[in-house]
Design a binder for these strands. Structure first.
Length: 301
DNA sequence: CTTATGACCTGATAGC
DNA sequence: TGCTATCAGGTCATAA
C-alpha cells in the first residue's frame, strides 16, 4: 500500500496510540519476516542462494518487550518504533504490509484469510495490540540497537526524504543519469518515499514526460518536479493517504486521496486539464500513465 | 561504476 | 459456481 504519504499516515496513528505506553510482550509468528543485526546479510528468507543457519528465536527485548515507546520516526517509506532503552524496531511495509492498532478489548478488522498473515504481535500493558500483517511478505521488520545504528546501517543508502527534496538536490544526485526521469524518482537511493502512484502524479503536475532522460532536464524542470513531489505528498498526507484496494491506516480509517489522482489508474481516460487521452505503458517495470499533451516528450525546462 | 531484468510472494479481480 | 490469467502501492540480487 504504502508510499511516503501512506507510511506517514500510519506513523501518526501508531504514534498517537503507542507513545508513552509500555510493551508487555511480543509474539513472532513468522521468524523469517524479522531480521536482526546478528542475522546473515539480508536475513533468512531473503538469502536466496546457498544454505543459511536455522533461524533462532528472537529475544523479546530486541523487539521492545519491556520498553516504553518513546517515539515513531520515518524516513521515506520506512518506519521505526523507538523504545526508551534506545532499541529500535524498523518496519518496512513492502507492497501489502500493514501496521494495525487495536485498543484494549477491541478486535482488529478481520481479513478474509483470518490471522494467517499476522506475523508479529506486540501486546501493550493494560491491553491493546500492535500487529504487523503482510500477506505478500515483501515487507519486514528490522531490529537495531539504536536509531543511530539504524541510520548508519540500514538507512545509510537512502536518498533525501521526499518531503524535503529540492530541485538542486535531485539535479545533483541524478542530473547526469541516462535513465528515464520516472526511474530516477522511484530510486530510493536518490529520493526516499516516492512510489508508482506519486511518481506519475508528480510528473503530471510538473508537466514532464516520465520517459524524459534525466540528463535532458534543466534546472527549472528539476525545480518543478521537486515542488510537485512535495505538494502531491503533502496533499495526500492531508487526505490520509490513497486508499487502494483495502488500504486503511492503523485505526481502520480509509484514506481519501485516491479520488484526487489525476493520472494514476486513468490510462485511456481524458486528461483533467486538456481533455486529451491519457497514455499508459510500462516504464521501469511499472504501469505508467501520462498526458502526451501536458507532458511533452522533449522539453528541457 | 551504471542500468536493466527477473525473482520474490499472495490475494483480488476479470474473463471465460 | 469454478477455473485460469493478469495485475498489484516495492525492493533485491545478479547480469550485462
Amino acid at each position: 500500500m504504502p508510499e511516503l504519504a501512506e507510511v506517514e499516515t500510519v506513523r501518526r496513528s501508531v504514534a498517537r496510540a503507542l507513545v508513552g505506553r509500555w510493551i508487555e510482550r511480543v509474539t513472532v509468528r513468522r521468524r523469517d519476516v524479522v531480521v536482526t543485526e546478528l542475522d546473515p546479510p539480508g536475513g533468512f528468507s531473503r538469502a536466496r542462494s546457498g544454505a543459511v543457519a536455522t533461524p533462532k528465536r528472537v529475544p523479546g527485548a530486541m523487539l521492545l518487550a519491556g520498553d516504553r515507546v518513546s517515539g515513531v520516526v520515518r524516513h521515506g517509506k520506512q518506519l521505526a518504533i523507538v523504545g526508551d532503552t534506545g532499541r529500535v524496531v524498523c518496519v518496512h511495509l513492502g507492497m501489502s504490509g500493514r501496521l494495525l492498532v487495536a485498543g484494549a478489548g477491541e478486535r482488529l478488522a478481520r481479513a478474509s484469510w483470518g490471522e494467517a498473515h499476522d506475523h508479529v504481535v506486540w501486546r501493550m500493558e493494560g491491553g491493546g495490540r500492535l500487529v504487523f500483517r503482510d500477506p505478500r511478505r515483501f515487507g519486514g521488520v528490522w531490529l537495531s540497537p539504536s536509531v543511530e545504528h539504524l541510520r548508519r546501517v540500514r538507512w545509510a543508502g537512502l536518498g533525501v526524504d521526499a518531503l524535503e527534496v529540492t530541485g538542486a538536490l535531485l539535479r545533483e544526485r541524478a542530473g547526469g543519469s541516462a535513465r528515464a526521469v520516472k526511474a530516477v524518482l522511484l530510486d530510493q537511493n536518490v529520493l526516499a518515499g516516492v512510489g508508482n502512484i506519486y511518481a506519475d502524479e508528480a510528473l503530471f503536475r510538473a508537466g514532464v514526460s516520465p520517459t524524459t532522460p534525466a540528463r535532458g532536464l534543466g534546472a527549472s524542470a528539476w525545480g518543478r518536479i521537486a515542488s510537485s513531489v512535495r505538494a502531491v505528498l503533502g496533499e495526500a498526507i492531508e487526505a490520509g493517504g490513497s486508499s487502494l484496494r483495502d488500504y486503511t491506516d492503523s485505526d481502520g480509517t480509509p484514506g481519501g486521496f485516491a479520488q484526487e489522482h489525476r493520472v494514476y489508474g486513468r490510462g485511456g481516460e481524458a486528461c483533467v486539464v486538456c481533455g486529451g487521452i491519457l497514455e499508459a505503458s510500462t516504464l521501469a517495470q511499472r504501469t505508467t500513465v501520462w498526458c502526451p499533451v501536458c507532458q511533452p516528450a522533449s522539453q528541457g525546462g
